[in-house]
Amino acid sequence: MFYILCPYCGEHREEEEFHPKGQAHIARPADPENTSDDEWGDYLFFRDNPRGVHHELWVHAVGCRKFFNITRHTVSYEILEVYKMGEQPSITAESLASAEKSQGVQVGDGGQQTVGASDSAAKDSRGTKV
């Protein structure tokens, strides 16, 4: 049972008031008709399942009914930050890794990844899936 800070209500609420809506930052292709079948299929069906930092879309369903994003660690389940629609996360797998590196902490191989939040990750996630 998560305790989630709703960025619109400004306070923490019980998970039962929220619905998770999957991976965040999946933009619908701007021109669907000129999108290839592969790209469209990728948009529709393919999602990432990282061990570590994950950006998720949630809605405060029994509450203010607003959608917002959560950056969550999929191992510890810690919610690292919440941010409104249209905003970008300040914490990503890359930012955490570089923070840990600067503290001399080794980040495990492939242990953490993120998708969608940063340009490089978004680029990497295209067409590389198997």
């Binding site: 619908r28 629609m85 249209g86």
Partner: peptide, 12 residues
């Protein structure tokens, strides 16, 4: 919720 998600996330 469907109408809201499209309005809030795609076509604000």
């Amino acid at each position: 919720e469907w109408l809201e998600i499209w309005h809030q996330t795609e076509w604000p």
